[in-house]
């Protein structure tokens, strides 16, 4: 027991403590100056904005994928079910180079898109795509068990009360999934904000345009501007904690109304 706590402190508490200790060395003005500098602000905007947009896409597509996997039988269903986990399992650097290769000007998808005048690799769209890639399992794996466990009787009840399928899906089923949907959304969002490996290859990394916050942290570190790196890291960290905190509150709120029985 004591050993566990010691180990945890050595491996987790002390490092994180160092982060906040470093931040506390900064004056509020210094901190504010770093965080609101144009390049930092833009990097944070890009990270948060695109992460949010990607999480929205994941929310919609994730729901569609879950519906297809849970409700329908089609050839290859089990395979596609397993495939959903690939973004979890694939090392981020591998995902990064693969997505870049795929969407580069001469890539399998990049070439046809270039013909349409759409450039994906080395633009913010590339960041967006990579964030969609890494976020999709979060929505699917959070919502899937809830849809599987959903009592078939509530749909039959809706039908027997005269509801058409549209009403049943949008007024009964989807509202029951809301806590899971929001949790999946938040997890995908938080993951995309912190994501580094799968994004930096395809991002282009142009300051103020396609430079994500985690990359800026790395750049500041390589410039030995530890204070800058730390300040940006703290902003990201606090944001992810807020998201996680919101998820927990949300789940508690949902559970108070919808107990497991």
């Amino acid at each position: 027991m004591g050993l566990t706590l010691t180990w945890l402190s050595v491996i987790i508490l002390i490092p994180l403590g160092a982060l906040f200790l470093k931040t506390s060395e900064l004056s509020l003005d210094q901190f504010w100056g770093i965080v609101t500098s144009r390049r930092t602000l833009n990097a944070l905007k890009i990270s948060f904005g695109l992460s949010f947009a990607a999480a929205c896409v994941n929310l919609v597509m994730g729901t569609i994928i879950v519906w297809a996997l849970v409700r329908y039988r089609f050839p290859g269903r089990r395979l596609f079910d397993a495939i959903v986990d690939i973004p979890f399992a694939l090392p981020t650097a591998v995902a990064g180079v693969a997505l870049t290769q795929l969407f580069a000007q001469k890539g399998w998808l990049g070439a046809p898109l270039a013909e349409l005048g759409i450039k994906v690799a080395f633009t913010p769209i590339g960041i967006f795509i990579a964030m969609i890639f890494i976020g999709i399992p979060f929505v699917v794996r959070t919502v899937q068990p809830v849809l599987i466990d959903l009592d078939p009787e509530i749909e039959e009840a809706a039908a027997s009360l005269g509801a058409n399928r549209w009403h049943t899906v949008f007024r009964v089923i989807l509202p029951s999934l809301i806590p899971a949907l929001l949790t999946g959304f938040a997890l995908a969002f938080a993951r995309a904000i912190g994501e580094y490996g799968s994004v930096i290859f395809i991002a282009g990394n142009l300051p103020n345009v396609s430079e994500i916050a985690p990359l800026l942290v790395v750049i500041r570190l390589s410039e030995f501007r530890y204070a800058d790196a730390t300040a940006i890291a703290v902003v990201m960290l606090v944001a992810s904690f807020l998201i996680i905190f919101l998820i927990n509150r949300l789940q508690r709120w949902a559970q108070a109304r919808i107990p497991v029985h």
Partner: peptide, 27 residues
Amino acid sequence: LITLIDLPFSVSPVISGLVFVLLFGAQ
């Protein structure tokens, strides 16, 4: 303790590296 164990999941990998630089780096 449980929160602490979960923590590395919710921290950006870059930040996970950063904390060790802050501890063991030249500065």
